[in-house]
Computed example of a mutant assay.
Amino acid sequence: MELTLAQEKALNALVYFAERIKPLYLTKAIKLLYMADEQAIRDTGVPITWLDYKAWRFGPVPEDVYNKVKQVDNLQKLDAGDGVLYSLKVSDAPADLPEGLVLNPIRPFNDDEFSDYEIEILQKVIDRYGKLTSEQLVDILHQEGTLWHRVVQANNLKQQFELKSNRSDYIIEFTDLLDTDYKKAAFEVAYQSHLMQQNLM
Rank of each mutant, 00 (worst) to 15 (best):
H149S: 15
D127G: 04
R107A: 10
E162Q: 15
I30W: 00
V15M: 07
L88Q: 03
D127T: 08
K22S: 09
V90M: 09
L178M: 10
A154T: 08
P98R: 02
E19F: 04
K68V: 12
K183F: 09
T146L: 03
N74H: 09
P108A: 05
Y117D: 03
M35Q: 05
I121S: 09
E2P: 14
Q192S: 08
P60S: 07
I41G: 02
L85H: 11
I140F: 08
Y86A: 05
P94G: 06
Y34C: 01
R150Y: 11
A36S: 15
L122T: 00
I121A: 11
N67V: 06
Q143M: 10
D181T: 12
K9A: 03
V61P: 00
V72I: 14
M201L: 15
Q76L: 08
Y86L: 06
M196Q: 11
T133W: 01
I121K: 05
L3M: 05
Y25R: 02
N104D: 09
S168H: 08
V102I: 14
L132E: 12
S87I: 00
V84H: 01
Y34H: 01
I119E: 12
N104F: 06
V65E: 02
Y86R: 14
E99L: 15
I30K: 00
P98S: 02
G59A: 07
Y16R: 07
P94R: 00
L14G: 05
E8L: 10
D116E: 14
E8W: 01
K54T: 10
E188F: 15
Q197E: 13
L11R: 05
M196V: 12
I172N: 10
D139F: 08
Q143T: 00
D64V: 13
L32W: 09
T133N: 06
K131C: 08
S134Q: 02
G100E: 14
H149M: 10
K124Q: 12
N12K: 12
